[in-house]
């Protein structure tokens, strides 16, 4: 007879507790370390690469992505943190600073990513008046340019026009472009710019002659002539010109040689200095000696 009382609780169904052969095999496969790592690492990586590859295989997508990247890059570059608003030039005269600004031709404000400091530095150092340039971008949007200017020390009278040279003989500027603060010594002659240091030393030695001296002339690219204001010359040897000049000055101190009527003092051979008298003086000398013979070079 069927039970009259309703069964309480869930009806017991005899479910097979055993796993099916496929679930059993799948679980074993899942517990295999190689399979697991393949599924956990290999499959996502494969899907990612395939997905990205498929997306970018269309040129339009590729262009869009590259545009977006460029846009993003530009946005970052144009942020105020990276903007350069001011250029500050230190160590240059106002005239030179103007020139530098004109050369660099920066359209400020500009992003610091767009500035090629190395190239700008090369550009600046190509300017003759600049011996060294340093550029760096400081916080607050400053482009600091520190210039080491070439200081003109001599005037070189070339065939074309007088130019200014610095202590190493480098061209600084044309004389007409500069207003000189103090008068500078003058040199002339071919190859004079290669021996500026020697010329400066000679100028220093010749300090007592300063007000009578016109300048130095490089002769034959090997030796110097001191040219005085009235056209008289002191010919200096190629080597050791300073002692020779010292001797002339000593001679001048002792006997006032330069006050006398001499045209040239030839010190080219230090053992045998020569003095060329002026024709008038020569005649006078001959008259005084009572002789009228000689070839004019006493």
């Amino acid at each position: 007879m069927r039970p009259l009382i309703a069964r309480r609780g869930p009806v017991l169904t005899h479910r097979d507790p055993a796993p099916s052969i496929w679930s059993y095999r799948f679980q074993r496969l899942w517990l295999t370390p190689l399979f697991r790592s393949l599924l956990r690492v290999g499959l996502p990586a494969f899907a990612l690469v395939m997905g990205v590859g498929w997306y970018l295989s269309d040129p339009a997508h590729w262009r869009g992505v590259s545009d977006q990247v460029a846009e993003l890059r530009r946005e970052i570059e144009n942020r105020p943190e990276f903007r350069v608003n001011l250029m500050n030039i230190n160590g240059a005269s106002p005239q030179l600073a103007e020139d530098l600004r004109a050369v660099l031709a920066l359209d400020l404000p500009v992003s610091s990513f767009d500035l090629d400091l190395a190239a700008m530095r090369e550009t600046l150092e190509r300017i003759p008046a600049v011996s060294r340039a340093e550029l760096w971008i400081q916080s607050g949007g400053y482009l600091a340019v520190t210039i080491e200017e070439r200081v003109p020390v001599v005037i070189w009278q070339t065939r074309v026009e007088p130019v200014l040279l610095d202590g190493e003989g480098n061209f600084v500027a044309r004389l007409v472009d500069r207003e000189l603060v103090a008068p500078l010594p003058m040199i002339a002659g071919e190859g004079a710019d290669l021996a500026v240091a020697e010329a400066l030393a000679l100028f220093e030695t010749a300090a007592p002659l300063r007000d009578r001296m016109r300048g130095l002339v490089r002769m034959g690219e090997r030796r110097w002539d001191v040219v005085l204001r009235d056209g008289r010359r002191i010919l200096l040897p190629a080597d050791q010109p300073r002692p020779a000049l010292d001797r002339v000055l000593a001679l001048d101190d002792a006997q006032d040689v330069l006050e006398r009527a001499v045209l040239r003092i030839d010190m080219r051979n230090p053992q045998r200095p020569n003095i060329q008298l002026s024709p008038h003086a020569l005649t006078e000398l001959r008259r005084m000696r009572g002789t009228d013979i000689g070839d004019g070079n006493g």
Binding site: D16, P17, A18, P19, I21, Y24, Q27, R28, L31, T32, P33
Partner: peptide, 18 residues
């Protein structure tokens, strides 16, 4: 075979190794 499979699967699951 089913019973063996049940036991093996349970033990494998507990051991977390095949």
């Amino acid at each position: 075979e089913r019973a063996i499979r049940t036991a093996i699967q349970g033990a494998q699951k507990m051991a977390a190794s095949r």
